[in-house]
């Protein structure tokens, strides 16, 4: 394989997309288990969706480019670099944080609790990412090393464009592997989990899954 060989996401076959969906399903399933253990309540997970979107459409993935979200971004290093983004709408992030800390919170307040809230959200991102990557590692034999998570509370468009930037280096389309988590409590918390391999990593992952060349 040439060093810069990459997979054009618009040319992925159904078999390849299904393989990615299957990995996402198992990975997110394990992440959901970890998630519900921390929250001590049942967490439901959607069937993962794998979509190919034009880059133009990426900033609008989460309720419009200007909507306020919490984004927890993890850089993945190792054999197949990429990024993982866990994003929650503002209210969901606040609810999640209050469950974790057992108190009510306002993310826009500037008080001293903000650091604690932020670390609780980062920690959730950490745990979800690690369970997802462990699964992917086991299924592909690739070594995947997550960074310390970064957190931003900002416009969805600004967060999404940073997360998907590397895919934009190569083509005009982005591969979106998304799973939604939903807790089954009264109010409900919805979280969006995105797995974002670089185009080169995608080639490697597909090859290791046995669907490299169709």
């Amino acid at each position: 394989m040439k060093k810069d060989e990459h997979t054009d996401v618009t040319e992925l076959s159904d078999l390849q997309l299904d393989a990615l969906k299957e990995v996402a399903n198992i990975g997110a399933g394990n992440a959901a288990t970890a998630f519900s253990q921390i929250l001590d309540q049942k967490i439901d997970m959607s069937v993962p969706e794998v979509n190919i979107l034009h880059l133009n459409e990426v900033p609008d993935l989460l309720g419009g480019a200007e909507s306020l979200i919490a984004g927890i971004l993890v850089e993945v290093a190792g054999d197949a670099p990429g990024k993982i983004l866990f994003a929650l709408e503002k209210e969901d992030a606040e609810r999640l944080s209050s469950i974790l800390l057992n108190e009510s919170l306002d993310l826009e307040s500037e008080d001293s609790n903000i650091e604690i809230q932020n670390s609780s959200l980062k920690e959730i991102g950490n745990i979800l990412t690690n369970s997802y990557l462990n699964t992917l590692s086991q299924m592909t034999g690739l070594s995947l090393l997550p960074s310390v998570p970064g957190l931003a509370l900002d416009m969805a468009g600004a967060i999404l464009e940073v997360a998907f930037l590397q895919q934009g280096h190569i083509g005009d389309y982005a591969l979106i592997v998304e799973t939604n988590f939903l807790d089954t409590g009264d109010e409900g918390i919805k979280g969006h989990f995105f797995f974002i391999p670089t185009p080169e990593s995608l080639t490697k992952i597909l090859a290791q899954l046995g669907v490299g060349r169709i």
């Binding site: 900033p59 419009g64 900002d154 416009m155 468009g157 940073v162």
Partner: peptide, 8 residues
């Protein structure tokens, strides 16, 4: 109008 400039 352009919305949600991050690193762009």
């Amino acid at each position: 109008i352009t919305s949600g400039l991050g690193s762009c």
